[in-house]
């Protein structure tokens, strides 16, 4: 859906998406890195199960919600990609999960 221009030569930043290894560039948000990697669906809706992907890229629409390093409902378009991030498709409503040692 998107390709990177040759002048975009920022440092490569490896991450995983649903376990698959991918590489973004310094300066990418999570949503941009996913689009560059050919990912157009990043979550499904809690109401209907319909697939969604990034829509506004500026923090307004909340359609790029993903799970990042175990934290659900992160806005992919506002979070800067960091090396080693484990990003996951958010399928429907996420599970509420206790922090370790809390119970």
């Amino acid at each position: 859906m998107f390709r990177r221009l040759p002048e975009a030569t920022g440092a490569p930043i490896p991450f995983t998406f649903d376990g698959r290894e991918m590489v973004g560039r310094r300066g990418d948000t999570v949503a941009a890195a996913l689009l560059a990697a050919g990912i157009s669906v990043c979550r499904t809706m809690a109401v209907s199960g319909a697939p969604r992907g990034p829509y506004c890229m500026m923090g307004v629409c909340f359609d790029c919600l993903v799970t990042i390093d175990g934290a659900a409902n992160r806005q992919g378009c506002l979070v800067l990609l960091v090396e080693g991030m484990r990003i996951k498709t958010q399928a429907g409503a996420p599970q509420a999960q206790a922090e370790e040692g809390a119970t």
Binding site: M1, F2, R3, R4, L5, E7, A8, R25, G27, D28, T29, A32, A33, L35, A36, S40, V41, A50, P51, R52, G53, P54, Y55, C56, M57, M58, D63, C77
Partner: peptide, 25 residues
């Protein structure tokens, strides 16, 4: 308009400005 693959023009501009991404296909 909620289908993946539908975005705003502004979104594409942001992807271009911040990551040097251009639409393909």
């Amino acid at each position: 308009w909620t289908l993946p693959g539908v975005m705003t023009a502004g979104a594409a501009q942001i992807a271009l400005k911040s990551s040097g991404l251009v639409p393909d296909g």
